[in-house]
Amino acid sequence: MALKLENVSKTYTRNGLDVLALQEGSCSIEPGQFIAVCGPSGCGKSTLLQVSGGLMRPDAGTVTLDDQDIYALSADERAGFRGASLGFVFQQFHLVPYLNVLENVLVASLALPAKSPASQRDARDRGLALIDRFGLRDRAFHRAAQLSTGERQRVALARALLNEPRFILADEPTGNLDEANGEEVLRHLAECAEQGTGVLLVTHDARAAEVASRVVEMEAGSIRDEAMPWGVA
């Protein structure tokens, strides 16, 4: 049931120079857990999140979900896996500018194979419920540009949750938000974890430690997970 990273490494090459962004990192997350990976900017948090989420193949090591190596899948199978099992939240929200709030949430349903009218109605109902839950009921038919940053991030969170994923991967979700909105987003993430979703939050926001069930420190590409014996770099 766990999403597991074992000895993953990732090196970028820029202008002929190698940047070691992730160094034999290991970490594991179970549904219902809320892990916060904290560390200074540039330490490799985003790299860790993308490798975990099947968005970027590591140079070495494996990422497995239920013992299935996700990088052994084809690109399309991996996309299907992301659509069904993962939800992403980013610092920049990444809403589709020409869609309204509800449509932005429903974008996630495009990844699901079943397109029967019943499943479409289902998705719409779930979307509306999430919009309601995040206090966006009046905003359902507004465009992203008409929303405040806090509202945008809650739309992104609703989109991440639409397909009822087992894990949410959040990259600095509070980075562009004021204090109150940041806290609200963290609270929602904690709520998700309570309801059984695994949450992997990478951030340099110190408040994350208050809501997470476990905090993992990261520094210069090394991840120090006290709970995992092999995770010590």
Partner: peptide, 12 residues
């Protein structure tokens, strides 16, 4: 937009 659609799980 392409980035987020792909992340969300749309196939190429």
């Amino acid at each position: 937009e392409i980035g987020i659609l792909r992340a969300v799980g749309l196939r190429s």
